[in-house]
Structures are given as structure tokens and as C-alpha cells.
Design a protein around this nucleic acid. Structure first.
Lengths: 361, 361
DNA sequence: GAATTGATTGGAAGCGCTTCCACAAGATAG
DNA sequence: CTATCTTGTGGAAGCGCTTCCAATCAATTC
């Protein structure tokens, strides 16, 4: 069916070795030979056979990305970074979306098939111990993003420090009764953000109490979802009505905050007047919802992770590196820091200018 | 480095053919031979070499998905469907995200490499004519989603009919001055939704005028983005203040509507009291924004598209089929049909019940 | 003019698997 | 007891490529 290098060789009157060299820009080919072969290849619309190439060259030019819940806005933006970088490098990206932890192992096993991929990106989940050994044994490069293992390159956001900064911001606005809405404490972000919150309170001599922390670990994405934010906020409002003094809340993720704002609206509680909110992530919608939030460099994490994977392929024995990112506080309206209408208006017009600018190009 | 079937054959004292048959569940192997070989395979932790298998068997178990702007919520949900189905079928999914039309051709070319993928899903873009011939010639199965070509299987949403229903809904609520906010008319959805809008007006003897249609085709995603919605709505409000009578607007997509609502809020225009909105897509956020919208079965389109691709692999010469989906009107608050607070409250509590239900499981 | 060098080239070997064909060894039938 | 199946099995061929080694031939050197 397909045109092979043998066809090209016959047609161009050369050997298959020469054909291969021409196609791969090998230096030692006479210019006119190369021209002739390439002309024939074009004429017969030759297409190299991907797997034959890969089998022979032992390079796949493919990486896999094992991502939980990739419909989560956080992961989508990371994924966009990975994908753009893959395009730039000429790599194919196999997307392995994990909806349930057991799937992660299936995908790990699959990625480990000899010659399947040149490297693996593993996101936001604990790497099962049994696979650590396998990756080492198979010498398959692995880069972890938003999770950590000392035996592999890792990229992490400083969740604890970010949560501290978020909480400090609320404190600096005069709040002393600050609650927290969190997702599963079993997750790294959930755990570390709680720690940061607690630390910020304590360094300011505000007593920490688990009573002020509402944890919803159920539902999809370990509780990092809108519904969980909705019900958590309702619970918080209920407690508030029963006498608990709460003027602000630190919410562990933007998606939860979106749900929380819905709940506040439904209950007639104003944000930020009655309850100020600071959250975490800065997903695209955060600006729509006017959320004050800790920005994570999601896109950059994606591109850097793939770059690191490439580096690791070249120098497999280098020492694993841990790269951390410090999230950045983005102030919008939900925390009440911009209650002055002047500032708010000016902000709106800036947004507008940017839009118009884009329209005029 | 790797363990091959030759190693297994030697170790188990059988031939490579037998080993291969054992691993592939071929019937004609004696039960104890099979057991012995599998035991050895396990002991040596044998991993088949993906590309060798594929080269020899001429099956790749891989498909590619060429998707524009996959960070768009619409595509993400379709993609989730594709990915889940791929997992179910044991296929790998190569994600080719297109940010710019020229990339689509690159990815098409790449997908056409012999033996690279068993099939291709192509989303929402016009398939370049030159590639039609190539796919036919290479006999590479291709399924189109959200776009159409009579020579291939296609899945489409009935944009025109959906837009008609959306517009009719506004008319049924008593509106007669209905504007439209649209994205690029060069896109199929943009074009067809305009047609539907126009048709619905005319069948109700309401004059259609392009003056009531605001088109923003620039920016990312051909104008299907938040910023475009924002600026279009501002333009609409400006015209309104200059005397144009507008009480409702049909917006071509939910993302645009989200921006439009922002603009309305910034300008002090109430939704739905001053301007009622109906839009299109029903992305996850639509319920958060309380958008009345035309729901597209995105996830289903993803799963069905992959299923169709499989079917096409099995019977390559069957006649191409076109499958259309009728979008469904989802009524929320933005159209004003539920202005009664009773209904609104009941709706909120239903949402809540669902949330709590989930929490209790 | 012989010897050496460098630039090209042909093609065998090998990547690790599937599959087909041939064959051995019992089992069954006549 | 011979002829005919069955059931398992071994291993060569081949998938289409890369790469290495040997070979050719013209150019250069002494």
C-alpha cells in the first residue's frame, strides 16, 4: 500500500541507505543526489512510517501526560502550556485523563511499555511507590508537576506560603474572624493551604480553630469543585447566623469560590461587605467573578515541565531538581480592598481599554 | 536493555511463536505451556515493545484529535467524552491543539504519516480541500465534529434551528426588539446562528436588520470569547442609550454572554429586567451565571464521534453518515422567564438538594 | 605512477514483534 | 496396523526504517 524507501531507492536509482540519509539531512550525500531523491519522494508523495522509524531509531518523539480531571480549569491551563511546548519541539502528546485513582496506575503501566513514550509528565497525584522503582529501572524520564517525590524532577507551587499571604492580606484589611473553606486534606494543596492559613493566624496572635474550617472532601476532584464551595458557604452562613463571628473567608480554590459566591448570593449575604473572600489559583474566571486570589503560573508550569523532561532525556543521570513557584496575590473586589468606587471604576476602564485595543488590531 | 520474546522463549524452553501466542491469547496453545510462559513473563517483568507490535501488526491503537482552542469550555467537554471513550476502548489519544489555522495543516500532515494513527477526529474547522483527497487516498478514517463535509462522517449541532428556538423563546416572552451578539460569520456556528435568529424574527413578522446585530470576529477563538462579549454588549448599550429600542439579546455563545453580563453590570444595566439574554452552548458555567441557553450535548458528541471512528475503521467503505443534534432550551434567569421569586427559590433549593445529596454519599 | 585520502554510496544487519507454514506426535477411524 | 485428522509447536519471513561497515572512485600527495 504505502510507498517505502525501497520504492524511492529503485525510482531514484540509489540505495536505501542513501535515501534514508537524504530524508534525514545526513551531511554526507552529494547535493544533486539529495535533490534527485527528494524530488522522487515528493513525486510519489512519500510518507515515512512512524513506527518503523521509531522502532529502528529507538526514539518515539512522544510524551504522555497523566492528568487528573483535566476539565478542571487549573489543569487545562497547565495542559495548554504543555501542548504549546510540545508543538514547538515537534513532540506528540498523549493525553491520559484520570477520573479515578485506579486509572492512574493503568496509565503509568501503559506509559512504561518499552518504546511507547520518551517521557512522562505526572500531575498532582501521589506517585505510587511501586512505580517509582519501575521508572528508575526502565530509565524512563518522569517529571512531576504539582506533586513531589525526591527521586524525580518536581515542580511545585508554594501552597503554604501562598495561603499565608492570602490570609495575611485579609488580616491586613482588619479582619480577625477569618474562616477557611477547604477541600480534601488528603491532597497536598488542601493540606498545605490549611497549614499556611493556620500559620498566618497564629503569627498574628489570632487563635486557630478547626471550627472555623469547613472541609468538603467529597464529590469530584476531591472537593475542589463548585458544588462543594456552594454547600460549604451555606454551612458557613448557617454557623454565622447561629452566632459565630465571621467577616472573611479564605477559600482553597477559585472554583470553590465561584460556588461560594453563588451560595452567598442565594442567601442574601453580600461579598465583600458581609463576608470578604480571598481564594487560590487565578483561573480565567477569577477576573469575571472579581475574585481576589493567589495566582499560580499555570501555563508556565506546563511549558517548564516539558522543557525539564527534555533536559532529563538528554542527561538522565543528573540529580533531580525541585522547582517551586511563589503564587502572587491578585487584588480584585471580593476581598473588599477596592471598595472605593473610584478605584473600581478605574479598574473597569482599564479592562475595557484592553478589550478595545484587541478589537482594533 | 529490555526483555524480549526471545528471552522469554529461551527461559520457558519454547519457541517465539508460542510465546507470542501465549501473550495474545491465541487459542491453539496447550494450557500448561501458556501458564509456564506467562509465569516467566511475569518473573522477568516483560513489557511488550509498543512500536514493534504496531509495526508488525499494522494497528496502532491510537487516534488523534485535532481541536481548535481546546481551552474553550465547549471543546473541553467534548474532549472529555472522547478521552473517556478512548480509555474504555484501550486506545491512546494524541491531543493536537490548534491555536492558529496553519497548525491544523501541520497536524493533519502529521496524522497522515503512515502507521501513525488509526484514525483522526477533526473538530470545528473547515477541512482543507487538499487534505480530503489525501485522507481518501491513504484510506485513513476521519470523523468530523461540529463541521461538515459530505465525503466523511460528520456530527453537527443544528445551529440554525437552535438559534430559532432561542429567538422564539424571547419572542414568546413578549420581546419584539431583539438584538443579536455574534462572533465571526465566517464560522459555521456564527453563520448558522445568525440565520436562525433572522428566520425566527421574520416568521413572526419582526423586521430583521443588521443594525441589530453586533459582530465581533477578532481576538482569540474567532470572537467566541469573553472580551468580545464584553465589548459587544457595551456597544449595544451605547446604541440603546442613543435611542435604539432593545429589550432582549440573543448571544451566540455562553462565553460571550459571560462577558456581556460583566459589561451590563459595569454599565448599570440589569439582566434580565433591562435586557433579557438567551445564549448558546450550556457550558458548565452557564448555570453559575444563570444563563438561559441552548444546550449542546457536548460530552455525548465526543463519545459518539470516537465510536463512529471505530466503526469506520471496521467498515471503511460504508457511506459517510451525518448525525445532527438538536440543542435543548434550558431556562434559567437571564431571560426573565423566571422572574417570580417563588420559582427562583424553588430552583435554588433543588440545586441545593442535589449538592447535599452528593455530600451524603 | 603508486599510495593515500576523502567524499559518496550500497546494502546487510537489526530493532521486537506477528503470522504463516511446516512439521511432530497423538488420537481416531477404517 | 495403516491412513487421516487434530492439536501444539518452532521458527523463518517480513513490517519499514536507521546505521554501520565495506567498497568505490576521484582527487591529492610524494
Amino acid at each position: 500500500m504505502g510507498v517505502t524507501i525501497y520504492d524511492l531507492a529503485r525510482e531514484a536509482g540509489v540505495g536505501i541507505g542513501t535515501v534514508s540519509r537524504c530524508l534525514n539531512n545526513h551531511p554526507s550525500v552529494a547535493p544533486d543526489t539529495r535533490a534527485r531523491v527528494l524530488a522522487v519522494a515528493k513525486r510519489l508523495s512519500y510518507q515515512p512510517h512512524a513506527y518503523a522509524q521509531r522502532l529502528a531509531s529507538k526514539k518515539t518523539n512522544t510524551v504522555s501526560a497523566i492528568i487528573p480531571f483535566f476539565t478542571n480549569y487549573f489543569f487545562i491551563q497547565v495542559l495548554q502550556g504543555v501542548q504549546d511546548k510540545a508543538l514547538e519541539l515537534g513532540f506528540d502528546l498523549i493525553l491520559y485523563g484520570v477520573n479515578d485513582p485506579s486509572q492512574a496506575e493503568y496509565y503509568l503501566r501503559r506509559s512504561l511499555m518499552r518504546g511507547h513514550v520518551d517521557g512522562v509528565l505526572f500531575f498532582s497525584m501521589d506517585l505510587p511507590d511501586s512505580y517509582v522503582a519501575k521508572f528508575v529501572q526502565m530509565k524512563l524520564p518522569l517529571v512531576l508537576v504539582d506533586t513531589y517525590d525526591k527521586r524525580f524532577d518536581s515542580f511545585r507551587v508554594r501552597n503554604r506560603e501562598g495561603a499565608m499571604e492570602a490570609t495575611r492580606h485579609l488580616i491586613s484589611l482588619g479582619h480577625t474572624n477569618i474562616a477557611m473553606i477547604n477541600a480534601s486534606l488528603e491532597t497536598h494543596p488542601g493540606h498545605d493551604r490549611l497549614e499556611g492559613y493556620r500559620h498566618a493566624l497564629e503569627e498574628n496572635n489570632i487563635p486557630f480553630a478547626m471550627d472555623n474550617v469547613i472541609v468538603t472532601a467529597t464529590g469530584k476532584q476531591d472537593g475542589f469543585n463548585r458544588e462543594a464551595g456552594y454547600s460549604s458557604m451555606r454551612e458557613l452562613i448557617k454557623r454565622r447566623r447561629m452566632g459565630m463571628e465571621i467577616s472573611a473567608v479564605f477559600i482553597a480554590s477559585d472554583v470553590q469560590s465561584i460556588g461560594a459566591i453563588e451560595a452567598a448570593r442565594a442567601e442574601g449575604v453580600r461579598v465583600p461587605e458581609d463576608i470578604a473572600i480571598v481564594s487560590f489559583d487565578d483561573i480565567e474566571l477569577a477576573s469575571h467573578a472579581q475574585l481576589t486570589t493567589m495566582r499560580q503560573p499555570m501555563y508556565t508550569m506546563g511549558t517548564m515541565a516539558l522543557e525539564r523532561l527534555m533536559k532529563r532525556m538528554k542527561t538522565p543521570d543528573a540529580k533531580p531538581e525541585l522547582t517551586t513557584f511563589m503564587p502572587e496575590l491578585i487584588i480584585r473586589e471580593s476581598c473588599g480592598a477596592q471598595r472605593s468606587s473610584t478605584i473600581a471604576k478605574r479598574f473597569a476602564s482599564i479592562e475595557l481599554d484592553r478589550t478595545e485595543e484587541r478589537l482594533n488590531t
